[in-house]
Design a protein around this nucleic acid. Sequence first.
RNA 1: GUGGGUAUAGCUCAGUUGGUUAGAGCACUAGAUUGUGGUUCUAGGGGUCGUCGGUUCGAGCCCGAUUAUCCACCCCA
Length: 458
Amino acid sequence: MKPALAKGTRDFSPTEMERRNYIFNTIKSVFAAYGYREIQTPAFENLQTLTGKYGDEGDRLIFKLLNSGDYLAKTPQALLDEKASLKLIPHISEKALRYDLTVPFARYVVMHQHEITLPFKRFQIQPVWRADRPQKGRYREFYQCDADVVGSESLLNEAEFTLIYHEALSKLGLKDYTIKLNNRKILTGIAEVLGKPELIVDMTVAIDKLDKIGLDGVNRELLDRGFSTVDLEKLQPIILLQGTTLEKIAQLKTILQASETGLKGVDELETVLGYIEKLTGDTSLLDRFVALDITLARGLNYYTGCIFEVKTNEVSMGSIGGGGRYDDLTGMFGLNGLSGVGISFGADRIYDVLEELALFPESTGQSTRVLISNFDKLAELYALPLLQKLRRAGIATELYPAAAKLKKQLAYADAKNIPYVILIGESEMQEGVFSLKDMATGTQQQLREPALLAALTT
RNA sequence: GUGGGUAUAGCUCAGUUGGUUAGAGCACUAGAUUGUGGUUCUAGGGGUCGUCGGUUCGAGCCCGAUUAUCCACCCCA
């Protein structure tokens, strides 16, 4: 058979792994600086843990694992006759690959509530799987880098997440990106002011598409979803909110006067912005990278407060990060009254962006520093003690594993970007020296062992 | 789930209105150079032209189906 990758998956070769680890390590270091500690959870969970958390569309995209054994034996015949795929799922599948890191984290918190101290700040970098149609920047297996805190209602967390986004993305070399902020309570308030709180989901889904389908498109969709032309008139100034963040906030306060929830949302937003300004010492971060975007809704239905989304403005790519506050995520698992807030970096999309912008540092990984040539068995034996001495000195060294033409060995060093080659031939062995070749300059010098070690450790 | 594009060497792709034995670059192997890489030169290996069927004297090229893949929508990192 012809080998092929499963749709939407990728291999990661050595250079790619070095670059991916560079991204992970950069993000990790920022998470750590803000007090987040790492955990991991299993690749698959009980299907019941995951279903119902991401909406109907999300449930459809969860990769389900078929039960082992004779999984059809105990399924009701009626469902089989009906070919009712959806109803059959709980009978033939009890496990599923995790769809994100937030829900497994919520499960983790509930199960470990007696051993963690609140507020609990954790980060988690692991792959997630979605049975989506792949396209640019969209994979079926991809890594999320999540940081969440549970057990703290302080809006300082939201402010810090904004700084975390900024620090990590700046460290990675990105110059122009927007951290969009919104608050679910503001959206709720808008729906309340219109007198149609029950249509909040329809409203957010529609106005979320403003930059894609334009105002007319949004209006058409709103009408389809049950809003009247009177509602549209009231909505227009809200959707088209203009001006600086401060001006937008002032306008929202007027518009949302009649909605207690809406005003609470605005107040929260102001508090977060205030914290950011205090943390950074000025408004430059706010002015350059943070934007209040009232059309930002995000699909996940568990968000209740602040909502984040990060977009790069340098290349065309979907969001490279997102997150928000969820007041009662652990409630689904029986632990009520625990508020959480978190963010996620889309590492694979960030990789694609850095690649497109050629922002990866030239050397993202530690590869072999020294190759010892191998001319014949005698030279090979002669080289072995040196090989281990160099390794013990912390110099990544390898011995070419077979006697081969020097041309081939040097080509190997060249292909692997090994900066030094040690040549051991008859004359070197007789004189008790080693020839050290610098691959970049092509120069060569004969050194005794102490000098050789000294030359390589500088 | 909906719509569009593409499918030719390991990779990226040419291939004229349908006409002899299907090409290039890169990569690989060998030689020029038996102990000196990256540059150069020479030679070499490598193809059921995604698959099945149709039209035709003749199909890589036209038509149909099918599969894969990419892009867009939905949704999302």
